[in-house]
């Protein structure tokens, strides 16, 4: 199985949309991004329904973050996904692959029809992302606590090669219980990686329970600050808030964004419910969810 091919027609459309978003008023911009996010969530429901498995809760909490990065923030060219000066995006919470795939497909990194093969035998779209099959994926994730160290390496590499790119990496909040993330933050601070943006999808739920009832993360802001980050708090479902939080570092420190989100955001009966970490909707629930997202 080779790398999926670019959907050049879709990339052209994406470029037009991206320019429109850049020129729009905040209200128009938010509406355009909301529409993209809506389509991503609908695609995710279709993918999970098709595959009979997936991680719908985390997909929906991270959808607006991914939409903002790809739709309005990152300097990227989906037709040239490995160009040297690209901004990098690592989804460390690789179990949210569904939302990532839909976001990438809608930008033309590959043909949207491929989403219909999600988790099929020999599909490029594994349950966790594989960079050797899916353009736009920077590194293979799935085991938690891997993305941030790789992002630190990329941020150092970008600096050494002088491309001026930025590196965005998204962790789940439960994932911040992995020690490797804190090793990486120490290094990011030590190296003064002001081109790194570490985003925590703070939906307050992990697979089995609430994060604070499991291995509490708060005071997460203080903890991130004490590890040397410029900490920003964002509403993870407010595009303006996210765009503002993703602005360049103002202190020379790595940026950490705590994006407060709702797991399952967008579908009322899925929101903020621990069992929807990887529950699969019934046919009736699919219809209801699509109705809410219509």
């Amino acid at each position: 199985m080779q790398l999926l091919e670019t959907d050049t027609a879709r990339v052209a459309e994406w470029r037009t949309e991206r320019a429109r978003i850049a020129a729009a008023s905040p209200a128009e911009r938010d509406a355009l991004l909301a529409e993209k996010a809506r389509l991503t969530r609908r695609a995710v429901i279709g993918m999970i329904s098709h595959a009979g498995q997936g991680h719908i809760g985390g997909d929906f909490s991270v959808t607006d973050i991914l939409t903002t990065l790809v739709g309005a923030v990152m300097t990227i060219d989906p037709a040239d996904p490995t160009r040297r000066d690209r901004d990098r995006l690592i989804l460390s919470k690789g179990h949210s692959a569904g939302a990532l795939y839909a976001t990438l497909a809608h930008a033309g990194y590959f043909d949207e029809a491929e989403l219909g093969t999600f988790m099929d035998p020999l599909s490029a779209l594994n349950g966790h992302p594989n960079r050797n099959k899916v353009p736009g994926v920077e590194t293979n994730t799935g085991p938690l606590g891997h993305g941030l160290p790789v992002a630190v390496g990329q941020a150092v590499g970008v600096r050494l090669t002088g491309t001026g790119a930025r590196v965005f990496v998204i962790m789940g909040d439960g994932e911040m219980q992995e020690g490797s993330n804190w090793e990486a933050l120490m290094a990011a601070s030590q190296f003064g990686l002001d081109n790194l943006v570490a985003i925590v999808d703070r939906n307050r739920l992990q697979q089995g329970a609430r994060t604070e009832d499991t291995n509490a993360l708060d005071p997460l802001d203080d903890r991130l600050a004490s590890f040397g980050c410029e900490v920003r708090i964002a509403d993870g479902h407010d595009f303006g808030s996210l765009i503002h939080a993703f602005r360049p570092s103002t202190t020379g420190k790595p940026v950490a964004v705590i994006a407060n989100t709702t797991k399952g955001k967008g579908v009322s009966f899925i929101e903020d419910r621990v069992e929807w970490h990887h529950k699969v909707p019934s046919a009736e629930q699919v219809a209801l969810a699509l109705q809410e997202l219509s």
Partner: peptide, 10 residues
């Protein structure tokens, strides 16, 4: 992990 990130930067 840092090694992987550096490698991906060429």
């Amino acid at each position: 992990g840092v090694g992987a990130g550096l490698a991906s930067s060429g």
